[in-house]
Computed example of a mutant assay.
Amino acid sequence: MSDAYVLVLNASYEPLQRVSMRHAIKMLVRQVAVIEEEAGGSFGPFPVPKVLRLVRYVVTRWRHRRPRLCTKSAIKARDRMCAYCGGQAETVDHVVPRSRGGALTWENAVAACLRCNHRKADRTPAEAGMALLLTPRQPKFVVVA
């Protein structure tokens, strides 16, 4: 039972997340959710849930809104690693350098470690002989750091 997961639906029947069986039982005890579908068997006084539905609606607007601002912290949160070597991201690098007209946009900025950022310097990745491990693009959802 410990490795089984339970689907949690919003009060409007939209899927929210999957939680462990332990977490699902705690939600039932606190009466924040009701069982929509049972898996069969019982877990103490409760039937084993397969799908739970929240009693109250939870607002999840952040999941559906596109991010508006392209900031350095948002770039680092989007990439989570150096785009050149895969190490820890400490800075933000412009794929097309600012000295050549490159701006801080979702498609032109990547997270980088200090070593790779200094190695690339004022060149494009092709000129520096460095390949990008990821393609920079605007995220579909708001990036949560």
Score class of each variant (00 low, 15 high):
V48T: 04
A145I: 10
A89T: 12
V55W: 07
K26F: 08
P136G: 07
P49D: 03
K72Y: 05
N108E: 12
A128R: 07
R137S: 08
F43N: 06
T124S: 11
R78L: 02
V96M: 12
C70D: 04
A111L: 00
L133H: 14
L69G: 08
R100C: 00
E36S: 12
L54P: 04
P47T: 01
A39T: 03
I25S: 02
G40E: 10
V48H: 04
Y5R: 15
V8M: 09
A74D: 03
R100W: 10
G41I: 07
L132P: 10
R80E: 14
A39L: 14
A121Y: 13
V29A: 02
S99T: 13
G86Y: 05
V34F: 09
E127Q: 14
L9K: 07
Y5F: 13
S12A: 03
G129Q: 11
V34W: 03
S99V: 11
R137Q: 06
W106E: 05
Y57S: 03
Y5T: 14
A121M: 00
L54V: 14
A33K: 07
V92Q: 08
M27W: 01
R18T: 10
V8F: 11
R65N: 06
G101D: 04
Q31V: 09
S20R: 12
P139Q: 14
R98A: 15
R66S: 13
V59E: 11
C85F: 00
Q88Y: 10
D3Y: 10
R18V: 09
G40L: 04
I25A: 02
L28R: 05
C82N: 04
P67G: 09
K120M: 12
H94M: 05
A89C: 07
C113T: 11
A33L: 12
A39G: 15
K72P: 00
I75K: 11
E90V: 11
S73V: 02
M81V: 07
T124H: 05
V96F: 06
T124L: 05
M1I: 14
S99N: 06
R123C: 01
L69A: 15
Q138V: 08
P125L: 00
G44T: 10
S42C: 05
A24N: 01
T71N: 13
V32A: 13
T91E: 15
K50T: 02
R137K: 06
C116F: 01
A39W: 11
A11F: 02
P49R: 07
A11T: 01
F43A: 11
G101N: 06
R63E: 10
V6H: 02
G102A: 14
V34R: 13
L132V: 11
L132I: 07
Q17N: 12
L134C: 15
C85M: 08
